[in-house]
Design a protein around this nucleic acid. Structure first.
Lengths: 195, 195
DNA sequence: TGTACATCAGTGAACGCGCGTTCACTGATGTAC
DNA sequence: TGTACATCAGTGAACGCGCGTTCACTGATGTAC
């Protein structure tokens, strides 16, 4: 039953992808390894041929998602990197709210990652940096330090809006939070709005 | 071993308080009922004399925290309700970041509550409303609709900043996120800053 | 290139453990007379 | 007010279950000659 190296690598990747989706949907603690492996089309016993432990997988998922530009991974095609507006709109759309499986890790797993081990937190900290950099890069009309300040504020507003909108049992309220935050975040690019 | 009605009510309250702290520190799913009851000074068997199920307790915790003005409960004394600045500063201080046990439920349990049952979500949705109302009430220099818009944005920025700052393994970065968000949220009260 | 053997990806049963929940029991509280 | 009895808060053992992890096994892959 041994598989070729290529196949084994594909399997590992399939497990990481399945975990990335299941963790975001159900939470890390609430996701069992057996379910996870079944979602990847395998039985649970083989898990430890690929990972040292569940914690190890969590860290791998964080790394993988980092490579994927996590906060925008729910989009079929990532928005043109030249467009600050497109990034903000893609993040704060109802579609993102309804699809945590492929959505921003900060919003779905933020509080769980805050309790994770040092290695995982450090990987995700890098991801936060990267997200802020992505936004700051679109604000080149400002001096670098101010672009970064504005980008950081926009990131906070976006993540907070998604967390709050996902709690809302009232869809109208959820959408009003998202559209309000969208308008606010977009103002980061407006020179006559201080930030 | 029967206790008086007064004592029983105090016990129930003690369980809810212990749960509110443990849930925020460890997460809801990761907190066991036996540990919880021990933290309240009881054995686990008595739990069901007070609650129908763990889900029932979660909902009770949400209600209790609602009554406590959750997002600011980490303060020894809640800031003067006249001061928008005091609320924002109290929320976005390093002390809050370091004390999830008594901190804002949106930041500690947001993603878990988004996965909770309808009743719990609806209770916490009311809490979001209440938090936004609290902030909007301090922005009476603006017309009501604009005060609410500004308050909603500030709430999103504050919650998102706390979520991201708690992930950070780098304390300097965490504090820069908090202080940046503080400056941004305070701008909500500034009439020459659009919102 | 062909053969013999070591490797190891994946299976499925089994491990101990802690989970949420139930239950028989205790004895102080509350109530009916 | 005093007595007899029902109630029920809290205890601690026990329930079945699913968890993360381990292990003996299988057989195709990879490697050494």
């Amino acid at each position: 039953m041994r598989k070729s190296k290529t196949e084994a690598a594909k399997t590992r990747e399939r497990i990481v992808q399945a975990a990335a989706a299941e963790f975001r949907e159900k939470g890390i603690v609430a996701t069992g390894l057996a379910d996870l492996m079944a979602a990847a089309g395998l039985t649970h016993g083989g898990f430890y041929k690929h990972f040292k432990s569940k914690d190890d997988l969590v860290c791998e998922v964080a790394k993988q998602v980092l490579a994927d530009a996590a906060p925008l991974s729910h989009c079929d095609q990532p928005p043109c990197p030249e467009q600050f507006e497109a990034i903000v709109a893609a993040y704060l759309c109802p579609n993102h709210r309804e699809n945590p499986r492929s959505g921003c890790v900060f919003a779905t797993l933020g509080s769980e990652i805050a309790r994770a081990n040092a290695q995982t937190r450090s990987v995700v900290t890098g991801e936060i940096e990267k997200f802020i950099d992505l936004l700051a890069g679109q604000l080149s009309c400002f001096p670098p330090a101010e672009a970064r300040r504005r980008a950081t504020t926009a990131a906070c507003t976006m993540v907070g809006a998604m967390v709050l909108a996902r709690i809302c049992s009232d869809a109208t309220m959820a959408e009003s939070i998202l559209s309000n935050a969208k308008a606010a975040a977009l103002r980061a690019k407006c020179p006559d709005s201080p930030a």
